[in-house]
Design a protein around this nucleic acid. Structure first.
Length: 484
RNA sequence: UCCCUGUUAGCUCAAUGGUAGAGCGAUCGGCUGUUAACCGAUAGGUUGUAGGUUCGAGUCCUACACGGGGAGCCA
């Protein structure tokens, strides 16, 4: 028999019966039988798919008693064998030199030191515990599945934009401008914190002596930068890490997270909303197709509706609703005694989590695109709507709300008219000088344009049903949490 | 940051203010084409940290650390 080819487990599981193969991976479980002069069943995983492949190793393997029967969860091995059919209709690998000459061997590549304290045991672990061993948790079926789905979604995002003529723009991680808007920022500095230079009057830190010659921080958004490229390349997007130094302790916030921010020229809010809807549907369709194995697991063990709700969402158009209409629905629900809220509903104030959840989870039971919010609760760069009632000025903003997560996308048409933009900047007390280059975009060939931000981790949460955002990123960074 | 709640064996959890327990995992043995295997035995503990109350604290009190749920901020 010819020497077996090294196959990934995903491929070995699809190989025809009789194929000689070599597989390499890590042991998930081992069970022994004394039948037939010794028989061990080893479940092996290598990350190529959700399923393990079962090795059936007989006592005729040279190192059977010395090594095979001492394998524990986590050991790394490679094995030569032959694909055979199982009674249940699948395939497994027979590792038996007595039956297949030259195709029955197990080589141990790495033992597990002290199996008693190996953190990943063949039993259910709490996600909280696994977070403490984040360097090893990807070896579990849940975190392996999350990692593959995360990859699948990242690739699908790039493919979606590439296929539609978007350019991928690498916006900076470090920013020395103080104009990215709200949100506490992380300082980037090489100054000696034990001996900070002072300004001449001694009242402030002299950042002129710092690495960049001015105060600098980690970015909280690539939007303003990507708008510059939009004003030449028409269709662009960023996909990179984003940092917020907010003291947020929730299952939906991270200090370091990844965000997708497309920006389209010659476009209004309706086009923006359509782009976001098309993208989400493309991503859901892709993950259901490419990671059916992992999605089946999420539906079985993590969130029953994981697969069905994605299929359901792909089938029909998202609902579009203005903020004003949303407020009316909430007010009617209160008036009818249909629903009681902790916080009052009032036009002009931001919707609370409970209000958003009512709309998307109870009233409509589907994703909802809320548009045209009051200007006082939205950012300076959002376009003022025309023909508004007095005292009811709105902006061309949109939030996409989904059941279970709440806001997954936030976007807007941008204010392309310089006079209106300047008015908004001064109205909100922002330092207009800092915006000189952003304002230039309105001075030199301004056009209507729009864009949105999609939180990558929230997308993964929604797709997988994982409840805590810290479990959908390999090494979560959050207040008091920067291990690994 | 605020409210609630939790921290006991490698892991998941019990234990009325009075001798520290179980299941799983690990180790050893038995049985078995096993797959959440099963049966028996063995090992495994400064009860998150620091104080306090008490004859006596895993249990009651205080502070702190860390986790979880909710809220705010948002993606």
């Amino acid at each position: 028999m010819a020497a077996g080819t090294w196959l990934r487990i995903a491929d070995a599981l699809k190989a025809p019966v009789g194929t000689a193969v070599t597989v390499k991976g890590w042991v998930r479980t081992r069970r022994d039988s004394k039948a037939e002069g010794g028989l061990s069943f080893v479940a092996l995983h290598d990350g190529s798919c959700f399923d393990t492949i079962q090795l059936v190793i007989t006592g005729s393997v040279g190192n059977y008693a010395d090594e095979v029967t001492k394998l524990t969860t986590g050991c790394a091995i490679e094995a030569d064998g032959v694909i055979v059919a199982t009674p249940k209709g699948g395939v497994e690998i027979q590792v038996d030199p007595a039956r297949n000459a030259g195709q029955g061997a197990v080589r141990v590549l790495g033992w597990v030191d002290d199996p008693d304290t190996y953190p990943i045991q063949p039993k259910p672990h709490s996600f909280e515990y696994l977070r403490e061993v984040a360097h090893l948790r990807v070896r579990t079926n849940t975190f392996g599945a999350v990692a593959r789905v995360r990859h699948c979604l990242a690739m699908a995002i790039h493919r979606f934009f590439h296929e539609r003529g978007f350019y991928y723009v690498h916006t900076p991680i470090i920013t020395a401008s103080d104009c990215e808007g709200a949100g506490q920022m992380f300082r980037v500095s090489t100054l000696d914190v034990m001996n900070l230079p002072r300004t001449a009057d001694g009242k402030a830190i002299n950042f002129g002596e710092d690495f960049f010659g001015k105060e600098s921080h980690l970015t909280v958004s690539g939007q303003l930068n990507v708008e510059t490229y939009c004003m030449a390349l028409s269709k662009v997007y960023t996909f990179g890490p984003t940092f917020r130094a907010e003291n947020s302790n929730t299952s939906r916030h991270l200090a370091e997270f990844w965000m997708i921010e497309p920006e389209i020229a010659f476009a209004d809010l309706a086009a923006d909303a359509q782009l976001a809807e098309d993208m989400l549907k493309y991503l859901f369709t892709t993950v259901l197709t490419e990671r059916a194995d992992d999605m089946k697991f999420f539906a079985e063990r993590i969130e029953k509706t994981a697969v069905d709700r994605l299929k359901h969402i792909v089938e029909k158009p998202f609902l579009r609703l203005t903020y004003t209409e949303g407020v009316k629905i909430l007010e009617q629900a209160i008036a009818k005694g249909q629903k009681k809220f902790e916080f009052p509903v009032k036009w002009g104030t931001d919707l609370q989590s409970e209000h958003e959840r009512f709309l998307t989870e109870e009233h409509f039971k589907q994703p909802v695109i809320l548009t045209n919010y009051p200007k006082q609760i939205k950012a300076f760069y959002m376009r003022l709507d025309d023909n508004c009632e007095p005292d009811r000025q709105t902006v061309s903003a949109m939030d996409i709300l989904v059941p279970g997560i709440g806001e997954i996308v936030g976007g807007s048409q941008r204010e392309e008219r310089l006079d209106r933009l300047d008015a908004r900047i001064s109205e909100m007390g922002l330092p207009i000088k800092e915006y000189w280059w952003y304002r230039d975009l309105r001075r030199y060939g301004t056009v209507p344009h729009a864009g949105f931000g999609l939180g990558f981790e929230r997308l993964i949460q929604f797709v997988t049903g994982m409840q805590n955002i810290r479990d959908v990123i390999p090494f979560p960074r959050a207040p008091k949490q920067a291990d690994f």
